[in-house]
Nucleic acid binder design. Structure first.
Lengths: 160, 160
DNA sequence: GGTGAAACTTCTAATAA
DNA sequence: TTATTAGAAGTTTCACC
């Protein structure tokens, strides 16, 4: 996987777009003292290079009534069942992330729910999947850090 | 926390914007057979209500050379040190998410790194924080599910 | 609530430097 | 690679349903 070289201007553009994808290119151009056309060309290049995959809204799920977050570690009877179990997990609503992992768990999920009772139902669905031996739940009491901009800065400082 | 009522049209608008925040309102309007002005007003209302917090780019960090993902559980000597330790964690680069959790760990982090060696350095920084008793790392072999659209659908089906 | 059209802003691609 | 430019496209407002 070839590494794409980002220069300072690319970094600044990404920085602003990570914070707000709808910021006009003209605004970015003004701040960086370049032309809007340049911003356009650079963004297009990063899209073509596959650096920028897409864009998404950030929603306040709490305001919609879904403020419960938990991580669920899944233990399997046999590792060979991983693919099968993942397919089943993909059918369960409110599972937002799933990773195959080394270490303690075989599969590691993140769920978002209304409350503990709602979460219980989701976890029961996970437990019920054939091949799942047991699960272990960690409830999030507080999401302290969740910042894409931080990662971008870490990467850019690292690359320099 | 008051729950905001989303109707079918709001849901469809969010659905399209979650997939691509830069899709023109005129396109959304065409697909939903409403006017662009209506889309604009609805989005504005959801922004004012705090449902839509912002928008962000999705980047391929792998293409930038950062394809290593791990979850790190942190054990503390005393729970009362949580705030202090979180402040320290916030200083460590490449830690992208941190939660205070119940269950096995006191704090739960997600990190993104270049490779195992790079990750090791990050984990050592976590281990070195005063009050951290030990850490436990789970390396992601594969991110199988990571889909905001799924969550939106789960929520909307639940609300109906 | 929503519409449609006007006024305004931004995007985008071609040209030129 | 970047700037300029100009026509196309998108956004936003508002009088009127």
């Amino acid at each position: 996987m070839a590494k794409f070289k980002l220069d300072e201007v690319d970094h600044q553009i990404l920085d602003m777009l990570i914070e707000n994808t709808r910021i006009p290119f003209t605004d970015i151009a003004k701040k960086l003292l370049i032309s809007a056309g340049t911003v356009h060309v650079r963004v297009k290049k990063m899209e073509e290079a596959g650096i920028i995959i897409g864009s998404s809204l950030t929603l306040d799920y709490g305001k919609l009534g879904y403020s419960f977050i938990a991580y669920v570690g899944v233990f399997l009877n046999k590792t060979s069942q991983t693919t099968f179990v993942l397919e089943r997990i993909a059918q369960i609503p409110f599972v937002t992330v799933a990773h195959v992992t080394t270490g303690k768990f075989n599969i590691f999920c993140k769920i978002r729910a209304k409350d503990t009772n709602h979460a219980k139902n989701i976890i029961f669905l996970l437990d019920d999947i054939e091949g799942v031996y047991r699960t272990e739940t960690m409830i999030s009491l507080e999401e302290s850090i969740n910042d894409k901009k931080r990662l971008m800065h870490s990467i850019f400082q690292d690359l320099v």
